[in-house]
């Protein structure tokens, strides 16, 4: 897998999407002006706000691997302080979003989940709000207005972090799916010239293609004459997969091997007939045992019990 952390998807937003996101969170010019006034409350106390975030993560033990990996923690602190500076910079374009996404990706890498992140982020918001309140000790309304403005921006931040975390999770799932596919189509040699190919689970077109390739390679490498393909574990076969099976059987025949298909479930057989798939080219036998008996017959072998039983 390529290192997805350097280019988190949220950082690939277009200018129009960045603009749209700002509009969604209702950031107006008035908000931006108010946020700019908060420079001292945010930037001068950035170490304090950053500490509020990370101390909380450590206290409630939601830091994932962060506190076990000093290089990640240092980078996260640095990015968070950078966040505090950008927060009141007035420029919330792509560079800003990219910064947020980078931090989000880092949290993902440290295995911090959304719960941990949100709990720490609200501590950071609390820390900022206290300093904002100090700027307007007697005017609660003015203080509240400023809090409302910067809160919009902070929630926009959350939305980006969330997108990044979800994208990371999806990438992880895709990678796992790939890993499962890799190990899912073993070809087993039962005896000389006889291969068994048990297929379990879902036959999507990618797997079907992989299966064909594996099978043809095994037929050549092991000089197989007969292959028993057991599809007992396959719940659904549609016309595309059926077509693939038919083609695989035809390709195997060209390579000098006969394919016997076993374990076709009654419902699957009914579906294929209803679909109208022509299965006359397939040699099917009810179950695996019957398939193996047929295979031995084709190979000119006979299984006999020795002695009396």
């Amino acid at each position: 897998m390529t290192d997805g952390y350097n280019t988190p998807p949220a950082a690939q937003l277009t200018d129009a999407e960045v603009e749209r996101r700002r509009r969604v969170f209702g950031l107006t010019a008035e908000d931006l002006a108010r946020i700019a006034e908060l420079r001292s409350a945010v930037v001068d106390h950035r170490a304090e706000h950053t500490a509020a975030f990370f101390d909380h993560l450590a206290r409630v033990d939601e830091g994932g691997d962060l506190f076990r990996r000093p290089e990640l923690l240092d980078e996260a602190r640095r990015l968070k302080e950078e966040h505090m500076v950008s927060l009141v910079s007035g420029d919330y374009g792509r560079a800003y979003i990219e910064q947020r996404a980078r931090l989000g990706a880092l949290f993902g890498r440290a295995r911090i989940d959304m719960r941990g992140f949100l709990s720490a982020f609200q501590m950071l918001i609390g820390s900022i709000v206290r300093r904002v309140a100090e700027l307007h000790p007697t005017d609660t309304v003015a203080a509240m207005d400023r809090v409302v403005s910067i809160r919009k921006l902070l929630f926009l931040d959350i939305s980006i972090i969330q997108d990044v975390m979800i994208a990371e999770r999806e990438q992880m799932i895709l990678n796992q799916q790939e890993a499962i596919r890799e190990l899912s189509t073993p070809t087993l040699q039962l005896r000389d010239r006889l291969l068994i190919l048990p297929i379990i689970g879902l036959l999507d077109s990618f797997r079907a293609k992989q299966l064909t390739e594996n099978l043809l390679r095994s037929i050549r490498d092991r000089r197989a004459k007969v292959v028993v393909m057991d599809i007992t574990g396959v719940a659904t076969v549609d016309s595309k997969v059926a077509n693939h099976l038919i083609q695989t059987v035809a390709a195997a025949r060209l390579m000098g091997a006969q394919v016997i298909i076993t374990g076709l479930a009654a419902e699957v057989a009914q579906s294929l007939v209803t679909l109208g798939v022509d299965l006359t080219d397939l040699n099917t036998v009810g179950d695996l045992q019957g398939g193996l008996e047929e295979a031995e017959r084709l190979l000119g072998l006979e299984t006999r019990r020795i002695g009396s039983a």
């Binding site: 659904t236 549609d238 419902e267």
Partner: peptide, 17 residues
């Protein structure tokens, strides 16, 4: 229930493909 479930799954598979 029964084999109809597989027929439905197959039909969904076809239109989704």
């Amino acid at each position: 229930s029964g084999s109809d479930l597989t027929l439905i799954a197959t039909a969904i598979s076809e239109v989704a493909r």
